[in-house]
Design a binder for these strands. Structure first.
Lengths: 230, 230
DNA sequence: GTTTTCATCTCGAAC
DNA sequence: GTTCGAGGTGAAAAC
């Protein structure tokens, strides 16, 4: 990985045409050839970038470029003929570092994991509830969980990390379908999430859907096999 | 902006829980307090990050941490109680740089601009064509351009930077509507883009929609008022 | 302030 | 290979 702090001007031509006026910025050149240009704010998104696969060619400034104060011109070529031209004026820092291949991110707490934990502990959703099956199939896709309450009535459960309106809409569509199945009889709905936004809760309750806020850490504590971190 | 190359382990807890095993990475701390951790590949997305507003606190490693080989522990706190803990073992590089406020990106060639240029030069789309109006309203949204050919027939034009299938579908819906309007009579369709993907072209032609590849630079050259770069 | 839409979205999985 | 949908989406515009 090469880190360069330099006065630079950048011109991108590809899906759109964009221009960065001359200013001091960070230029990152990674081992896969990819390039990104960062300002001194915003963690996530670079000002400009070129995703791999791409190639970088560097050349000294010539003629009018030199007169304009430039010292080097880098040209990055990507797929589809996208180009990123980086015109450097003054280089304040330039260092390279061997990093090796990253072992990669381990994600936990994704919706699938939450669903698995709830499937193992359906009593969290309601006393005496039992799991019928995960990913119960319908014509428009699988319902996250189908459970039964102690009276034998079916309950469709939609699981989200953060409960918003679209999740309620999704569950509503499933319920419409499930309720047409005479084998299931009346089906209740439960919207389960770690956090439920106020307007999602209002919409759910208006439609007779119960809301359950899930304590993820407590669920994890119930199941030792889930202790995969550390 | 502070650049740190270090052996580090990272733990994020917020919208999800994620863990990065110990490895050599780049840690970027920007002037707005935001933090991002990069591996040696991929230009766009960091492995982990904390968006501003957030605060970083640094402390020396203690007790068991020291025995585990750690030297420093950084804790980044964001909104909603999100936390990013960066445990550093060996620091290979650490430098800070004053960058100042970036003048910002100037975007050109966006769809709106392409549409404006074509509106000024409808003859680019077909000999003798004239513009009826931009953003011609329909019940499902405005059509980019409505033109007339020399024979007086109407032509609906959909403008995209890169022509893909969804653009053809969009134009098809507009044409369906426009053709029901007896005042317009038969309406032809034109799909105009800087680049048209083969499968989009096939679909368009199959539906009797003409495809026009637009030379953006040539269009810009026609209009001096558009010389906003440099 | 909240909500919706856009993005050079990126990225992975399903088909 | 293409298509679809999620993302710790982020960020800007609209309301």
């Amino acid at each position: 990985m090469r880190l360069v702090i330099a006065e630079c001007q950048v011109d991108y031509a590809g899906r759109l045409t964009a221009h960065l006026p001359m200013a001091k910025r960070l230029i990152l050149v990674k081992a896969d050839g990819s390039v990104s240009i960062h300002a001194d704010d915003r963690a996530y998104k670079p000002l400009n970038w070129m995703s791999p696969p791409c190639s970088v060619t560097e050349r000294p400034a010539e003629g009018a470029e030199t007169e304009a104060g430039l010292t080097e011109v880098w040209e990055v070529r990507g797929r589809d003929g996208d180009t990123l031209q980086i015109s450097l004026a003054a280089i304040h820092h330039d260092s390279s570092h061997e990093l090796g291949i990253d072992p990669g991110l381990v994600k936990d707490g994704v919706e699938a994991h939450l669903q698995a934990l709830l499937a193992e502990h359906p009593e969290t959703l309601g006393d005496g509830w039992s799991l019928v099956r995960r990913e119960y199939p319908t014509a428009i896709g699988p319902v996250d969980l189908l459970c039964r309450d102690p009276a034998g009535a079916y309950v469709a459960v939609e699981v989200k990390r953060r409960g918003e309106i679209d999740g309620v809409e999704q569950l509503t569509r499933y319920l419409d379908l499930l309720r047409r199945d005479p084998l299931l009889g009346d089906v209740q709905g439960v919207f389960a999430a770690q956090q439920i936004k106020p307007q999602a809760r209002v919409l759910a309750l208006d439609r007779g859907i119960a809301c359950v806020t899930v304590d993820y850490d407590a669920l994890r504590g119930m199941d030792r096999s889930e202790d995969r971190l550390f």
